[in-house]
Design a protein around this nucleic acid. Structure first.
Length: 376
DNA sequence: ATGTTC
């Protein structure tokens, strides 16, 4: 593996670099999307990562460099990302069922005073309100208590085996979706970088991205307080955004932007997550890396893959690691089952094989909090 | 993804 597998399909098509090999599980429709987007006007480089899977407006698990701004390549959940924290709590003091019950406070969101103070500290007062701040949301979002199973690289972390961590995956909730839906039709051809439309979008996008980061911090704060602990940030990495990059615009869709050279790779409730270090030495990767295992099966097909008897559904709330899953929404419970996701070990193997990431620590899921309610 | 989707 050494170099990314790249191909130039036509003069008008951006260079496509694929950071996965034949051993990776890649849906053919996602590759078609990758190739389609590479042909969009002004597209200069595209990178596909091993968590690649089909999305609504384009593939997820990819980064796109263009001379203009394409809001659909960021998608509705502007600023969505993953934040990893170390919990100041010995593993022996974590009782899974008790912890699972206590995490129900996440349903309420952040305390209003705390939310307003956090928004103010982020310079968002007057730009964006506190509503829904501190809530996880739906879909693939979660707040998960994890235990360090192994540290592979002690030079990049002070985490130790058996330390507890918190991995928070959430975004800008209704904010990003509102910004995206509020755009007029001109976005379909992309926004010229110097246009007023681009400036308006970017101002809203940047505020939503900062709000999402505050959201993840407040989720971690509520969760750690509920567990009688404190959370110390290790890294917070955005995977849906557009930012300036070498005189162009870099769009990340389900592709993580490392922070301090680190990024969490989310596995699933039935598989390990990883803390990765990203050397950023392969320019074709566009400063990006996989954000997780990536979906293997889409949501609707999961309804046909898992039986919906009471015992089958109950089995989904306990994992092979002895972990707990809190998800009162039955549809979401099976749509997000571990088997809906690719094998993160395989994703990691590809990332390491192409030299774009190295495992620092392996993290095992203990309590995956999704939502209390929504049961049909 | 979504103060949601009859």
């Amino acid at each position: 593996m050494g170099n990314p597998i790249s191909g130039e399909r036509s003069a008008a098509c951006a260079r496509i670099s694929k950071f996965y090999n034949r051993a990776a599980w890649i849906d053919g429709r996602a590759e078609e999307q990758l190739e389609q987007v590479a042909g969009w006007p002004g597209m200069t480089a595209v990178a596909g990562f091993p968590d690649l899977h089909p999305g609504r407006f384009g593939p997820v698990g990819a980064a796109f460099l263009a001379d203009r701004i394409w809001p659909q390549l960021v998608g509705p959940d502007i600023g969505c990302g993953m934040a990893l924290f170390r919990l100041d709590l010995p593993r022996r003091r974590l009782k899974l069922d008790k912890a699972a019950r206590r995490l129900a406070v996440l349903e309420d969101g952040a305390d209003l005073h705390q939310a307003l103070a956090a928004l103010d500290a982020a310079g968002l007062t007057g730009l964006i309100g506190p509503e829904a701040l501190g809530t996880i949301g739906g879909g693939n979002h979660f707040c998960e208590v994890q235990v360090v199973g192994e540290v592979m690289d002690h030079t990049r972390t002070d985490l130790q085996k058996d330390d507890l961590c918190l991995l928070v995956h959430s975004g800008s909730r209704g904010r990003g979706a509102g910004i995206f839906q509020g755009l007029d039709d001109s976005w379909k051809q992309g926004f010229a970088a110097e246009s007023d439309a681009a400036a308006r979008y970017l101002a809203l996008h940047d505020a939503a991205t900062r709000w999402a980061r505050v959201n993840r911090a407040l989720i971690a704060s509520s969760a750690s307080e509920a567990l009688g602990s404190e959370a110390r940030l290790i890294c917070d990495t955005v995977h849906n955004h557009v930012v300036p990059h070498s005189d162009s615009w870099l769009h990340r869709k389900g592709a993580a932007c490392p922070e301090g050279g680190l990024v969490p790779l989310a596995g699933s409730r039935e598989a390990p997550s990883y803390l990765l270090e990203v050397p950023d030495t392969v320019s074709e990767a566009l400063g990006s890396v996989s954000h997780g295992a990536g979906r293997k099966y889409d949501r609707s097909s999961m309804h046909g893959r898992i039986r919906k008897t009471r015992s089958d559904l109950a089995a989904l709330t306990h994992t092979r690691f002895g972990g707990r899953v809190i998800c009162g929404d039955r549809d979401l419970l099976l749509e997000e089952a571990g088997q809906a996701y690719k094998d993160p070990e395989q994703v990691l193997q590809n990332l390491e094989g192409f030299g774009i990431a190295n495992a620092v620590a392996r993290l095992l899921p203990l309590v995956t909090f999704k939502t209390m309610g929504g049961a049909a």
